[in-house]
C-alpha cells in the first residue's frame, strides 16, 4: 500500500502531464471546433492539476477559475454562435507540408537549445520550502508589496481594453 501511494505521488505528475499533451493535441487535430474547445478545457483542468501537485494551490484555483471557468466559456460562445459547418470541410494539412516540417524542426532545435542553456536549477523544492502557510499568502505578499506597481499597471491596462471593447461594439451597433 505504501509503495503504491509513493509510486502514485511520484508518477502522478507524469501521468497528468502526458494526458495534458494528449488533450492538447486534440485541440489541434480535431476537425470540430466544439471538440477542440472541449479538449482545451481538459487541458486547462489538467494544467491546474500540475500546479496543484507542485503545491501552487492558488495558481491552480486561478487557473480553473479564470481559464477553465471564464475564458473557455467565451471561446465556446464564439464557436457556438459562428456557423460551424463550414469548418468541417476545411483541410487540415496544406500543401506546404515540406516547408512546415522544416520550420517545425528548426523551432524544436532552437527551443531545445534555449532550454539546454537555461540555468533552471532546483527551483520547485525551494518554493516548496518557503511557503508553509500556503501559496496564497505568498502570492498575495509579493503581489501587493514588491510587485504592486506592475500589478496596478496591468489592471489599468485591462480596464482600458475593456472600456475600449465596449465603446467599439457600441459604436458599431448604433450605425
Amino acid at each position: 500500500m505504501e509503495a503504491l501511494s509513493q509510486f502514485l505521488s511520484h508518477y502522478l505528475i507524469y501521468m497528468i502531464m502526458g494526458l495534458s499533451i494528449v488533450t492538447a493535441l486534440g485541440i489541434v487535430f480535431s476537425k470540430n471546433a466544439v471538440h477542440s474547445v472541449i479538449s482545451m478545457l481538459f487541458t486547462m483542468v489538467l494544467v491546474a492539476g500540475v500546479y496543484l501537485l507542485f503545491d501552487a494551490e492558488f495558481l491552480a484555483a486561478v487557473q480553473l477559475l479564470v481559464y477553465a471557468g471564464g475564458i473557455i466559456v467565451l471561446f465556446l460562445f464564439v464557436v457556438l454562435l459562428v456557423a460551424l459547418h463550414k469548418l468541417e470541410n476545411l483541410r487540415l494539412y496544406n500543401t506546404y507540408s515540406l516547408v512546415s516540417i522544416v520550420l517545425v524542426l528548426f523551432l524544436i532545435v532552437i527551443l531545445g537549445a534555449t532550454f539546454y542553456s537555461m540555468p533552471f536549477g532546483a527551483a520547485p523544492s525551494v518554493v516548496h520550502n518557503i511557503i508553509a502557510g500556503g501559496s496564497t499568502e505568498a502570492v498575495a505578499m509579493s503581489l501587493y508589496t514588491k510587485f504592486i506597481l506592475p500589478f496596478e499597471i496591468a489592471s489599468v491596462l485591462l480596464l482600458v481594453a475593456l472600456i475600449g471593447a465596449i465603446i467599439l461594439t457600441k459604436a458599431r451597433a448604433e450605425q
Binding site: I38, V45, A61, L65, A68, G69, V73, L76
Partner: peptide, 25 residues
C-alpha cells in the same frame, strides 16, 4: 484545503460547460 472556498468556486465554474454543451449538442 487551504484554498477551500476558492476551490469550490473554481470547480463549480466548470459545471457551466455541461449545460452549455448539452444545449448545443
Amino acid at each position: 484545503l487551504n484554498i477551500g472556498l476558492l476551490y469550490i468556486l473554481a470547480i463549480s465554474s466548470i459545471g457551466i460547460y455541461g449545460i452549455l454543451l448539452g444545449g448545443w449538442a
